[in-house]
Amino acid sequence: MTVDLGEGAHAVLAQSCRGTVVAVYRRAAYLRLDGHIVALVDASLAPGPLHVRCEVLPPLRAGQPVSGDGTRLAGGHWALRVDGPVWRGALPDPDKLDPDKLDPGALDPGAPVGELGADVEPEIADLVRAGRLEELAARVGGRGPGLTPSGDDLLAGVLVVARLFGGPAAGPRLDALAAGVATTEIARAFLAWAARGQCIAPVHDWLAAVAAVAPGPPRELAAARRSLVAVGASSGAQLAAGLALAVSQLPRTASQMARAGPAPLLRQSAGRSPG
C-alpha cells in the first residue's frame, strides 16, 4: 500500500508509463519511467518530491521491466497502487529568513564540507555570497561519496533557498543550472526538484523552524537540524550546510543573482536536460 507520493513522482505515475528498475537498495529502489526517475522507498524514509513511500517495498531487481496505468504500478508478480495522497514540501515566507534577525547559532553549517576536497572548501562561501551559482555547481557538482554525491547534496540545499528567495523569476536559470550538473542520473533528478524549491521533508522542516525562530535558536530548530543531519551517511549534513550557507549569504532576489551570475556558464548549461 502507498503511504504518499511526492509531486514529481505523481506527475509521472498519474498517467501511463513504462520503464525499468535502475537500482535496488535495502530501503529504496530507483526506477526510470519514460525518462524520469522515481524512487520507491519504505515508510521509514521521509517524503520527497520523487518518493513513492510504501508500507512494504515490492520484490524488485535491477533491470526489471515495470509499467503503470495511472492507478497501479506493476512489475513481474507484484502491483502497487500509486494513487495515494500527494506530498509537497511547504516553503516559508522568505522575509522570515532574514539573517540579520537570526541568532548566528541558528545558521551554523556544521557539516563535513571537507568531503568535497580541501581545494573546494575555501571557495564555497565566496561563490554563494556572490550569487555565482553556476560556478558553484561546476566546482562541487558530482564530487564526493554517496548515491547522491556530497557536492550535489550541498548544492541542493543552496538551490532550494535560491528558488525561495528568487521566486518564479529565478526558475529558468536554476532549472538550467541543475540540468547542466555533471553527476549521476539519480542525483540530477533530485537537483532538478531542488531548483524548483522542493526537497526531502526534513529540509522543509528546517526552513520552517528557522523562519519561526525568535532571537536565539529554540529547541524546535535544534530538533529539526538533528533530523536533517541524520539523513543518510552524510547527505543530511551536506544539505544542512548548503541551506545554512544560502540563508546567511545568498543574494536575496532574482535580479541580484542575475547581476552576479556568469552568463557564459548559464548558456552552456541550458542545452542539457535532466535524466
Rank of each mutant, 00 (worst) to 15 (best):
Asp205Leu: 05
Leu33Phe: 00
Glu7Gln: 14
Pro262Thr: 15
Asp69Arg: 07
Ala39Leu: 14
Arg252Gly: 03
Leu80Lys: 06
Ala9Lys: 13
Pro47Trp: 03
Gly142Cys: 08
Ala137Ser: 08
Gln198Glu: 15
Ala9Trp: 12
Phe190Asn: 11
Gly19Asn: 04
Tyr25Gln: 10
Pro215Gly: 00
His51Glu: 09
Asp103Ala: 15
Ala222Cys: 03
Asp4Pro: 06
Val158Lys: 10
Cys54Pro: 07
Leu265Asp: 07
Trp193Gly: 10
Ala178His: 05
Glu121Asp: 12
Gly232Thr: 13
Ala201Thr: 12
Ala214Thr: 11
Val38Lys: 06
Ala270Arg: 14
Ser234Val: 14
Asp126Trp: 11
Asp205Pro: 00
Ala258Phe: 02
Leu102Pro: 04
Ser255Trp: 06
Arg272Phe: 10
Glu115Ser: 11
His77Glu: 14
Pro99Lys: 03
Arg61Asp: 00
Leu221Ile: 00
Ala211Leu: 04
Gly197Leu: 06
Trp193Pro: 06
Ala223Pro: 05
Ser255Ala: 13
Ala224Lys: 04
Arg173Leu: 14
Asp4Ile: 08
Ser235Glu: 13
Pro202Gly: 08
Ala137His: 05
Glu115Trp: 11
Ala187Gln: 10
Pro145Met: 14
Gly216Leu: 10
Val181His: 05
Pro149His: 13
Ala189Tyr: 02
Ala224Pro: 04
Arg72Lys: 11
Arg252Trp: 08
Asp153Gly: 00
Arg61Phe: 01
Asp103Leu: 09
Ala224Ser: 07
Val21Trp: 01
Asp153Gln: 04
Ala9Ile: 09
Glu135Pro: 00
Leu136Ser: 01
Gly131Pro: 03
Arg272Leu: 13
Ala208Leu: 11
Phe165Asp: 09
Ala209Trp: 07
Val247Phe: 04
Ala211Asn: 02
Cys54Leu: 07
Asp98Val: 05
Leu116Glu: 07
Arg173Ser: 15
Val82Lys: 07
Ser235Pro: 12
Thr183Asn: 05
Gly180His: 08
Asp153Val: 06
Gly6Thr: 10
Ala23Val: 10
Thr71Cys: 08
Gly236Tyr: 05
Glu123Arg: 15
Pro112Asn: 06
Leu207Ile: 06
Leu80Cys: 03
Ala28Ile: 12
Pro149Gly: 13
Asp83Gln: 10
Arg219Phe: 00
Asp83Lys: 09
Gly180Ala: 09
Ala208Val: 10
Thr184Met: 02
Leu45Glu: 02
Trp206Pro: 07
Leu136Tyr: 05
Arg26Asp: 05
Ala192Arg: 03
Glu121Val: 15
Gly157Val: 08
Arg272Met: 10
Asp103Gln: 11
Pro85Thr: 04
Arg143Phe: 02
Leu243Ala: 13
Ser235Val: 12
Val24Leu: 00
Glu123Lys: 14
Phe190Ile: 03
Pro264Phe: 12
Leu133Ser: 04
Ala23Leu: 15
Ile37Gly: 04
Ala90Trp: 08
Leu116Ile: 06
Gln256Ser: 04
Ala211Gln: 03
Val213Ser: 15
Gly84Pro: 13
Pro172Asp: 04
Ala125Asn: 07
Val41Arg: 15
Ala192Asp: 01
Ala240Arg: 08
